[in-house]
Computed example of a mutant assay.
Amino acid sequence: MGARIALLSNPRSTGNIAQLPRIRQYCADHPDLFHYEVDEVEQIGCAMKTIARIQPTILVINGGDGTVQAALTEVYNGGHFGDNPPPLAVLPSGKTNLIALDLGAEGDPIKALERLTEIASRDVAPHLVARQLIALSNGSDGEPPVIGMFLGGAGLADIMLYCRHKLYPTGMPNWLCHGLTAVAVAFQNISGLRGRFLPPAPSQMDIGLAANGKLSGKFSLLLVTTLDKLLLSSDLKGEGQGGLKMIAVDDRRFGLLRAFTAVLRGKLGKTKMDGVHVTELDEIRLEGGQSPVILDGEMFQPRDGHPITLRKARPLSFVKLAA
């Protein structure tokens, strides 16, 4: 019998440093599970060629959001599986795990593997969900798009980089780093103060909304996603229609606080709010701004004359562990 599950691991992912020995042992105890480890993200293409020969029932990705993004891009662009790639699953590892969280994979990665092993031995279909994807192009001729599910830009990108470069290196637990970042952002948004120990002020940016015109200004938050879990609402609706959900919050005092309050009340996108823009589109263009945008943990920098373009990409099937 061939492998029901192919597991692609990135040992360099932070969450794997402690968990990988247990994962290796689990794989050794389950001969129907094929484990492929890569040392560099650039090796994922070669890994996919090998995995495609095995024709697994489920392809599991074990790494942070950057590893998941690279794997999605290779599955989408590489053509290794023809027109029928296997459904994907994501183990909870790495620093952020936004994609794993959206798919119901939380806590111990071994428990998630056990659940996936059980699912693969039966009928997978009841556990499959289609997830819309974001295709990011940065204007480079001939370069295939990068595929992901969550993009942060403007002030949000600065906040993510602040957490990554200022707090992660201290060795504090992830939850504490995220909590301190939230406190810093809340203090900054309420007080209007800036300082060397706080995230920098966002720069000017143009957000092209196809036929809907564009937004220009400084934004404390720009979020484009296909994920439901992150938005705390599976029925988020704003102006427009499309596969990409976008939230942009003008850089003004109390703007983020008002937007977050609307999320908690389930009102975001359902009631118009001054300075809070919610829409759904099939294409979004990002121009200007000195801050990069971050797609699933990886940075991309807009260049003069070469805007970053986000388009709706065809969906892929994923295995959802939670109901």
Score class of each variant (00 low, 15 high):
207 I>F: 12
158 D>R: 12
169 P>H: 10
167 L>V: 08
275 G>H: 02
204 Q>G: 07
218 K>N: 06
183 V>C: 14
161 L>V: 04
273 M>S: 02
231 L>N: 11
265 R>D: 00
205 M>Q: 06
203 S>D: 14
279 T>G: 14
162 Y>A: 10
261 T>W: 04
179 G>V: 02
189 N>V: 02
178 H>W: 11
168 Y>C: 12
275 G>K: 00
243 G>H: 08
209 L>F: 04
210 A>W: 05
167 L>D: 03
195 G>Q: 06
223 L>N: 09
250 D>L: 13
239 E>Q: 05
220 S>D: 09
279 T>Q: 12
227 L>G: 05
270 K>I: 01
250 D>G: 06
178 H>F: 13
258 R>V: 07
267 K>F: 00
251 D>K: 02
182 A>D: 09
203 S>M: 07
159 I>N: 06
165 H>L: 14
158 D>W: 01
280 E>A: 15
210 A>C: 10
210 A>N: 14
161 L>M: 09
216 S>W: 09
274 D>V: 03
254 F>V: 10
202 P>K: 13
280 E>F: 00
204 Q>K: 05
178 H>M: 14
194 R>Y: 09
246 M>L: 14
248 A>Y: 08
238 G>D: 06
173 P>N: 14
205 M>L: 15
197 F>H: 10
276 V>N: 05
210 A>I: 00
166 K>M: 12
239 E>C: 08
197 F>C: 07
192 G>W: 05
172 M>Q: 11
256 L>D: 01
273 M>Y: 00
163 C>G: 07
256 L>K: 01
186 A>Q: 08
220 S>R: 08
261 T>V: 11
215 L>Q: 09
191 S>I: 06
170 T>E: 13
252 R>L: 12
235 D>V: 09
263 V>K: 04
214 K>Y: 06
234 S>G: 14
268 L>H: 01
202 P>I: 05
280 E>N: 11
178 H>Q: 09
268 L>Q: 09
167 L>E: 04
183 V>R: 13
247 I>R: 08
166 K>F: 10
233 S>P: 07
220 S>L: 01
226 T>D: 12
163 C>W: 07
220 S>H: 10
203 S>R: 13
281 L>F: 01
190 I>L: 03
236 L>E: 03
187 F>M: 10
165 H>D: 15
214 K>C: 08
220 S>W: 02
237 K>S: 15
183 V>I: 15
168 Y>F: 13
221 L>A: 13
259 A>F: 01
256 L>W: 01
